[in-house]
Design a protein around this nucleic acid. Structure first.
Lengths: 210, 210, 210, 210
DNA sequence: ATTTAATCGAGACGGTACGTCATGTCTTCGG
DNA sequence: CCGAAGACATGACGTACCGTCTCGATTAAAT
């Protein structure tokens, strides 16, 4: 979990549109934004499974519903924003010169981040919401797209170094990682610990690979 | 897709409760059961994405809501029943003596079955519903559990034949298959065709494996 | 105030439509109807001036909003129904043979009924609601139309007996009575007591009239 | 229609508070006042029946909501101001020496003014608003009070000249006129034309009265 | 000319009510 | 007793106005 502002946030108007229209009117209240995101995150974390209602978020934030709808296009956008907003910065993927090393690190970090409290329940609820909310689904798709791209870069570098056969299907590798991750994360039938990360990495790189 | 009556279906009391209570009153109308399952499946197939309401199923089947609730514990149970009921028989997993062969067959069959019209949209909608409906989630979990076990058997047999190292984590292999499958199936960002099945199989079995 | 069922009530299906469609399904719950009308009347009486919300009526009646909308086309219809439902039967207008006598009686009764607790505040609120609610306005228009017709009958009989000049504009007389009534009733700047009824009657009948 | 500034307008603080505080700062913009009143009147005239929102007035006037609330205590005050502001000067009630003549003139003028385009829809909407807005109701009450007083003066003069019996209830006569007027004006079920004015006048003055 | 203070357009904000929708339970009547 | 129809309480939805509250940009008198 990292990155933020997966759209839905404030338009973040560039400074140059000031010429066109200097933005009259009362400005957005940052404290309100914070209150909403905090409330949403709290509900996301606490509400184990139960769906989250817009009214609950508004009430918890001490805010009118309209204020939510003014700034976010849908409930899902608020929830995703709440989750990503606090999720720390995008740690750049490692580049140690060893694919095995890099891959192991990325996979373990992914497994780890998702498990670390209090993200797990929040993330699970978010994905659940996405099933109902097409808008959130789209946002989530975009978000995971960037995550996939990051991993893909690591693999590309490894292949360039000759650590993978030139004809290896790297998208498949990426999807094996994230597929396994989401499958276990959502079903919860098997662990996503460091050992799993190791074994997954090993299974993806040919045994003889350095 | 196979198996049915993953619980949730009519208990269809065994014939011996007749002794205890001779069963007075009108018997369950089989035509009604069919009408409900057919209607549910039709909605499942047609409603691309949009959630399915109990009332829609009841109306489409020309049936009272109560009749639904009388025979299935939840909306999700009806939907799952509708999907599995028609899903053909459980083809026994192949046992050709070659793991690579067997695995390739199972994986390709899985990919294929999910894509074949009209199952794909129905299955996608079903999974979406499961996100909201804990009961359905549970049923689905059980269902996929049996699918996992089947694949696990194939792998066990292969390992027994020495086609896999003794210390290989077979649960991980299973989850790599189904993880990839669901990930691609639900996101739809990459194909689940025969070529993908081949490459996945190859990536799971060490290059030198027969 | 009397009469009732100025539409908006139960359709009151005649028994003969049974042939067409026997009306299957659960029947309307009379207790719920009563609870709603009672709650509405109570709010109408108590809420001095303040507008009445659908949600307040529903809550006070321990009823879902939907149930209100199921049976009445608008909030106004409920309120009117609540008021007329309990307003006693339509006392037939008097016919003593003396116009002066009859008119005095009708006018005094009208003035009286409106003032008698607890109708006054309820009626005032109802009219206020009618200003916003076109549907209620229409219903109210129909209701007052029947009241006007009643008074008109009394006058017709009087004219037939020669107690009024043949060319007297009887609709004007009717409107003078109800115009004065509503004007004073709503503004409340002057009494609507028995003396006012007397003086109004006298002013409408030429001094020399028997 | 006459009179204006039935309170609600700008207080326009007397010049003597200058001593206390010299009033620095920008002065009220008269053009804005006009724009608001014009917009309000236009909406009042056009919006047949539909309630008028503050935001609509502000938008139509190209003005911020706050500017409205700065100068008028309520929406109703704006509307009343808009209507009376343009409503022509207060024609002094006639005093021809003949009560019948004077009364006929006043009544006919009242009927006429209300019907003359575009006042009728505006006045109807205004009264409708008054039902919801207690502030406007009060303003309207005050306004109609002055109209009643005017008519009352005419009657007083007539009685002083002996054209009415000394014991005649003049408030009742006044209310018969305005009662009929509002009743027909708001319900619209019968005309308020010159003939009606004639007949009403005749009915109020004893037949033998000069 | 500068300061000071109020006006103005714009619009964010917390509320309250709206009328609709789906849920799962219940009641009624005919078969 | 089964089954269709549908009433019912509940509770969330997304929208509309309300009246108050910032905002920066004017504008005009007092300095």
């Amino acid at each position: 979990m990292e990155a933020n502002d997966a759209e839905g946030s404030v338009p973040d108007a560039g400074p140059e549109d000031t010429a066109a229209r200097p933005h009259t009117g009362r400005r957005r209240n940052e404290a309100v934004r914070r209150a909403i995101l905090d409330a949403a995150l709290r509900l996301l974390v606490e509400s184990e499974g139960a769906p989250i209602t817009v009214e609950a978020v508004a009430r918890a934030a001490g805010v009118g519903k309209q204020t939510l709808y003014r700034w976010w296009p849908s409930k899902g956008a608020v929830l995703l924003d709440a989750l990503t907003d606090r999720a720390g910065q995008d740690v750049p993927p490692p580049d140690t010169g060893s694919l095995r090393e890099d891959l192991r690190t990325v996979v373990a970090a992914t497994f780890d981040a998702a498990q670390r409290a209090p993200w797990a329940p929040a993330l699970r609820t978010l994905v659940r919401e996405a099933a109902t909310d097409p808008h959130l689904a789209e946002l989530l798709r975009a978000y995971t797209g960037t995550r996939r791209a990051l991993l893909r870069d690591v693999l590309d570098r490894g292949r360039a170094r000759g650590e993978l056969p030139a004809d290896r299907d790297l998208d498949l590798v990426v999807d094996q990682v994230y597929g396994l991750f989401w499958y276990r994360f959502l079903l919860g039938h098997a662990p996503l610990d460091r050992a799993a990360a190791e074994r997954l990495t090993d299974s993806l790189l040919a045994p003889g690979t350095p």
